[in-house]
Amino acid sequence: MPKIVVTGVDNSRTAAAAARTAAELAAAYGARLHILSAYGSFEAERISVGQEEILVSNEKTAEGVAHDVFVEIRQEFPDLEITFGPSAGTPGEALVTAATELDADVIVVGNKRVQGVSRILGSIARYVAAHAPCDVYIAHTHQRA
């Protein structure tokens, strides 16, 4: 039985669908769900607004994306233990790193780019399947054409 399920999100509907599937899986097994959003390599910019200076970073943006999905999942699964946060690296690297660090049992990814030419060239799901330290669940997240 899984103890920790990891999934990654961005601002897409397919990522949100994969996160929902991850939540269903975690709830069914009494596991904790960890939601992450990858941000690549750290980038930041200071912006002056009046006399205040604000630090804007891609890490903070990724944290906001993960938080937004956390809020949506929390509403539907109020008893589920959920953590979230930003993660450095590409989406595939971030998922594999988080799964390794958390000693996760399952990584849930969507199947958005698992068809056609991109399957041959590589995708998040393919990268994760090749490098994951645990099981990988590929969730059906979009309608077929």
Rank of each mutant, 00 (worst) to 15 (best):
residue 117 V to W: 09
residue 88 A to R: 10
residue 80 L to P: 10
residue 52 E to L: 13
residue 113 R to E: 14
residue 84 F to V: 02
residue 79 D to L: 13
residue 93 E to K: 12
residue 10 D to S: 06
residue 1 M to G: 12
residue 85 G to T: 05
residue 82 I to R: 00
residue 5 V to W: 00
residue 28 A to R: 08
residue 85 G to W: 06
residue 144 R to E: 13
residue 72 E to P: 00
residue 142 H to P: 06
residue 33 L to I: 03
residue 110 G to P: 03
residue 4 I to H: 02
residue 87 S to V: 05
residue 79 D to G: 15
residue 94 A to R: 10
residue 130 A to I: 08
residue 14 T to D: 09
residue 131 H to D: 11
residue 125 A to S: 11
residue 8 G to V: 05
residue 8 G to I: 04
residue 24 E to M: 13
residue 115 Q to C: 05
residue 123 S to F: 05
residue 89 G to A: 11
residue 53 E to I: 10
residue 137 Y to A: 10
residue 49 V to C: 12
residue 13 R to A: 14
residue 24 E to S: 10
residue 2 P to D: 05
residue 78 P to T: 07
residue 94 A to M: 07
residue 48 S to C: 10
residue 129 A to R: 08
residue 79 D to C: 06
residue 116 G to W: 09
residue 86 P to N: 08
residue 7 T to C: 07
residue 5 V to E: 01
residue 102 L to K: 03
residue 85 G to R: 03
residue 3 K to Q: 11
residue 55 L to Q: 14
residue 142 H to Q: 15
residue 107 I to P: 01
residue 145 A to V: 12
residue 97 T to M: 11
residue 8 G to F: 04
residue 118 S to P: 05
residue 27 A to H: 07
residue 59 E to K: 15
residue 27 A to D: 10
residue 36 L to K: 05
residue 80 L to H: 08
residue 91 P to K: 02
residue 138 I to L: 05
residue 119 R to G: 06
residue 95 L to E: 04
residue 106 V to K: 02
residue 60 K to R: 12
residue 97 T to H: 10
residue 43 E to Q: 15
residue 15 A to G: 11
residue 101 E to W: 01
residue 95 L to I: 12
residue 12 S to E: 03
residue 40 G to R: 11
residue 96 V to I: 11
residue 145 A to E: 15
residue 63 E to W: 10
residue 43 E to A: 15
residue 142 H to S: 15
residue 108 V to R: 01
residue 42 F to N: 06
residue 71 V to E: 07
residue 3 K to L: 07
residue 139 A to M: 07
residue 18 A to I: 00
residue 100 T to H: 14
residue 57 S to D: 12
residue 28 A to S: 13
residue 14 T to S: 14
residue 107 I to Y: 02
residue 55 L to Y: 06
residue 46 R to K: 13
residue 52 E to C: 09
residue 50 G to A: 09
residue 99 A to Y: 01
residue 44 A to V: 14
residue 128 V to P: 01
residue 88 A to T: 06
residue 110 G to T: 05
residue 33 L to T: 00
residue 23 A to F: 07
residue 41 S to L: 12
residue 51 Q to C: 11
residue 41 S to A: 13
residue 59 E to T: 11
residue 127 Y to A: 04
residue 79 D to K: 07
residue 88 A to N: 12
residue 60 K to C: 05
residue 143 Q to H: 13
residue 51 Q to K: 15
residue 66 A to E: 02
residue 139 A to W: 00
residue 30 G to P: 02
residue 98 A to Q: 05
residue 46 R to F: 15
residue 112 K to M: 06
residue 111 N to C: 06
residue 20 R to E: 04
residue 47 I to A: 14
residue 141 T to P: 01
residue 91 P to Q: 01
residue 43 E to G: 14
residue 82 I to Y: 03
